[in-house]
Design a protein around this nucleic acid. Structure first.
Lengths: 210, 210, 210, 210
DNA sequence: CATGAATGAGTATTCATTCAT
DNA sequence: AATGAATGAATACTCATTCAT
């Protein structure tokens, strides 16, 4: 009867996982929202955990793709490359706010799935960031900073507005769904790249003067 | 018979909520870990949600206290004050990593409790940060930046390592429990304050020179 | 696997509600007696209260039907009509002694369901009795009595033996399940109709003589 | 602290048992309403069932007393005696509507306590009614009727308005708490005694004429 | 007497999943 | 491919009762 049962299930699941959390959402909730028989979910995804894993891989597959697209610009310079990576990620996350929030939250739980994801996607992600940072330090674009701590800061900046959507909208009165936000926040992070990662331009100039 | 049932329950709850999430933790799990009869939880906290609310208020009460302690130094200058606030928060969160992670995660769920917390504690927190930022901009210590976006960045930096403990340890190989971490991360954020919030010192000097 | 789970549940429920009362009966009791999984009860009736409501409507739907069947004979005379209504009700209640007792008892509790039942079925029932009584008074068959008090007496007579089954059998040594009882008690109520409702026949005759 | 804990408990229990039923009322409900520690109830009445039994005996002790007071007038004639018994019972029940309803309802449950009550108080009650009826039949005041069926009718009439308080007030719009009701209903039952129990007066007169 | 803490058995209900159709 | 019925395990919670203080 339904033509896109599977897609409908995923959409409903993302929405509900996002608002109520994975454990706070029942298979029947999802089935009701997707207008699908509950048994179908077990049929398509083996079990509830299969649905979760599907969401994880869908997210991280695309996420890494965006990162790699930016990373490919490394030869244009570390700062440009880093900016591209950040922009791509921000755009992707803006386009998938619900999925992003749910994934980022679920990644903070200690579970088998999370450990697996970390040992693949996160390690890959860390590798890319590290490469860019190290390259920038070599070329003198970036300060000699701790790589892990820089990644830590960057990840914090990239995830904060998507994870705490409600805080952002209702306390700070910023709307992360709007296009304007992506641009604005992107320029904020650019300034972080400039101010925190890059060699101080004035210092640079001073050196040149001297 | 038992002497500290209530405290034992809270300890067990924080540990389990932290690792498995609120909805992923059953009352029986908590009772077993606390070596207490499950009915005692309802006895002391009315129901599971009451236990959650108790954790929320305990956390945010102390959290705001730390923030206000730092805020009281405002007359010593915006930068010093901001640093004090950041240091206090970092220290408190380092001392309560489990509670912090669990609370930060649970705050990303859409629920009644979360909305209530936001409309009280988060609004207060935002007020304090805003005051410091505006004061700094008035005195010329800080650049004229968007207040909400600055708070957004700061919150991202402050919460990231505590929320994603596993990522931090297992991917970045940083140990946020150690004292060293607090100092190191504190200096990282100091640099963010310097690099992103504060007026460029060289620019400043340049102006003086001219 | 089972063929008539729903019916089995209802049968078991009526039996247990009858003997132990609604609140004194657990869902597990019912499931055990019906040889059915306890979750099935929630599946079919939403919850325990849904099972109760189902019993209520089943009973009162049939009950009112019997009453209306008798009421349709109004044009044959008020006394005949009243007798028919009484006979139908008695027969129906004799055929469903367990359900009747349980329903009559549960109707004495202050609850939402009871209020709803009263405002529909009991109001309808009262309307029918009132019509017959008023018709009889108009045609001179019945004495000019208080309608509500007459209904009160009649209801008392109709419900007593079914509500207090144990008293009836063990104290009075009457067996209300037997066919003989229905006939006997029906003639008792007929005499009440004659003696209490109807115009005294001798008085009538005396008037004719004079 | 409380001076009349025990009395307060009984009052609260009667009120709650009346409205929510025995099994629908928890010991904590009672304790809260009586403003007493829950453990006190177990202390005073052994357990919840003890509280129930206490209510039963209190009720039936007084009930039988009223009946016997009326019965002592037997030598004044069966009709007068019967009327006195009915009046006494009605008055007592009017003065204790809550207790009466709760007891009458609970007597319809199959339990150990109920069986015990029946084998003592109800058997005694039946004995008294039987004596009066038989005496009346001997003296020619009453028709030769079935004793058990007459008792059945009488009990139905006596209990109906107290058991179905809500029906009486909200469907029939009669208020059984008012003094007027007792008088009115008493005269109704008098007419039942006259019309159903007593020898037809006209028939009597006719016999005399002939 | 009176009470707060504590408990074990029991409550209704929900859950993810299975399976015959 | 899709479903309604069914289930066993688990859920949060309530209960009457006990007991040391």
């Amino acid at each position: 009867m339904r033509k896109n049962s599977k897609a409908a299930i995923i959409d409903a699941a993302i929405f509900l996982f996002n608002t109520k959390g994975f454990n706070g959402t029942s298979i029947r909730d999802i089935a009701a929202k997707a207008d699908v028989n509950a048994a179908n979910i077990s049929y398509y995804f083996q079990n509830k955990n299969g649905l979760l894993e599907n969401c994880f891989t869908v997210f991280f597959e695309s996420y890494l793709e965006e990162l790699e697209k930016g990373f490919s610009l490394l030869e244009c310079g570390a700062e440009i490359c880093m900016k591209a990576m950040v922009d791509n990620v921000l755009r992707y996350q803006c386009e998938n706010t619900q999925l992003t929030r749910f994934i980022l939250r679920e990644m903070t739980i200690d579970s088998q799935v999370v450990r697996e994801i970390m040992s693949t996607y996160h390690v890959k992600e860390r590798y890319l960031f590290k490469k860019v940072l190290e390259y920038g330090m070599e070329t003198g674009e970036f300060k000699k900073l701790s790589v892990p701590f820089s990644i830590l800061q960057l990840k914090g900046l990239l995830s904060m507005p998507f994870l705490n959507t409600h805080y952002v909208t209702e306390v700070l009165h910023i709307l992360p769904h709007e296009r304007y936000f992506a641009e604005k926040y992107s320029s904020e992070i650019s300034q972080w790249i400039k101010g925190t990662l890059c060699i101080d331009q004035h210092q640079e100039k001073m050196l040149i003067i001297i």
